[in-house]
Design a protein around this nucleic acid. Structure first.
Lengths: 208, 208
DNA sequence: AGGGCATTGACCACGGTGGTCAATTGGCAT
DNA sequence: ATGCCAATTGACCACCGTGGTCAATGCCCT
């Protein structure tokens, strides 16, 4: 079944994958129609169900693909031995923005999958999602040097605050970007803005 | 049409409103079925369409109701002359949690309405949502005393950070509460946790 | 008794769904 | 050329739930 799909030429695989990612991420599992997917991919309905037994199987194949595509790169590129939380988070954000720009549909798919509500897939999905988040967080927060912080500061909470600040900033940016296409974004400006926030927090929390 | 609805006894109005709020907030506009709403409200289909011309009209009536119920109270209770951003945000969060507990469905409705994607209502809705957020933010950030901050600090960004920290904390809590019923929550513990974060930020940003 | 509003729920046309399968195509070995 | 088999098509299916209607009924007041 699915071996047939894997024997396809790479670009045909990708055409189908991208079409499905797009439709699922725009409509959510239940609303996403296989009709729209095949139209978007430029193949016939029959062929899709020749490769995947049913909608659910297709969805979870995509989920696996997306996780592999994004998370593996994320975990791989985030340097394991960076001990400065600011540098680490800066790196993580940069990487995240890079991934969003390079694989917008993959990223969106994972995001909507995270909030998926459909009963048919929710339980299974929730389990995977938890693992995913946990591995992401551990990659970020592992091996952080607490001794760089001012004495008497609650380091765990301080780190949490730094993280929330970056998360908030990220969401604010995404709100701004809704209209624009990703290419038109001046990443230098964005990073400079981030660094301003980091600077404030560094002065607040780090030994001078 | 709708005058007939307004002439109903309060508790019947509320039964219908609550049913509709619940279904809309759980399923989103398009997925929400009028069948389910009337079943939940314990009335017949015909009656619903006797009060509201169509689904859309019902939805926007609910939206107005929800805004009135929540925002008016929020704006009214948030003291206009509090100049300390920490006190103001503490008040705002407390108020927000209180509203979530007292009107969970109303709150959820507004939240899902904010992320609504359905083309039939999105444009109109987006407009209202923007106004809503703007008025909320201005209520919070108006009349803040910048002179309480340490010299040389970028106050605007510092305030932003404080806000993001609280927002992040709030989201983290909501994640935790997903399982629990709102009544089982120990609000004192939550507030104490908040105060710990506030304390850290205060030390970081305020003149001592 | 009867006028008139509140209320019912069976009914409708419709659109779209996930999935199937007999028929066709296309490429390759003979 | 021929035969063969896998890749591919798209018309087709049964099904479901939808938003909305409307003739009929219930109920209350005069």
């Amino acid at each position: 079944m699915i071996e047939k799909f894997l024997n396809l030429s790479m670009d045909k695989q990708e055409r189908i994958i991208n079409a499905a990612l797009k439709v699922f991420s725009q409509q959510g599992y239940e609303q996403a129609s296989t009709n729209e997917i095949v139209k978007e991919a430029g193949i016939s309905k029959g062929l899709l169900f020749h490769y995947f037994n049913n909608k659910k199987e297709l969805f979870f194949y995509l989920y696996g693909y997306a996780v592999e595509q994004l998370m593996n790169e994320f975990v791989a590129k985030l340097s394991r031995d960076e001990k400065d939380i600011f540098m680490k988070l800066r790196q993580a954000v940069l990487l995240k923005f890079d991934l969003i720009q390079r694989y917008p549909d993959v990223f969106d798919f994972l995001k909507t999958a995270y909030f998926e509500n459909c009963a048919e897939i929710k339980p299974e999905l929730e389990h995977y999602n938890k693992e995913l988040m946990a591995s992401g967080y551990s990659t970020i927060f592992h091996n952080i040097d607490h001794s760089l912080f001012k004495e008497g500061i609650d380091v765990t909470r301080a780190i949490q605050i730094i993280f929330w600040a970056l998360e908030g900033f990220g969401l604010q940016q995404q709100e701004k970007w809704k209209a624009n296409r990703y290419e038109d974004i001046n990443m230098d400006e964005v990073m400079e803005e981030i660094d301003q926030y980091m600077h404030i927090l560094k002065q607040a929390f780090y030994r001078q």
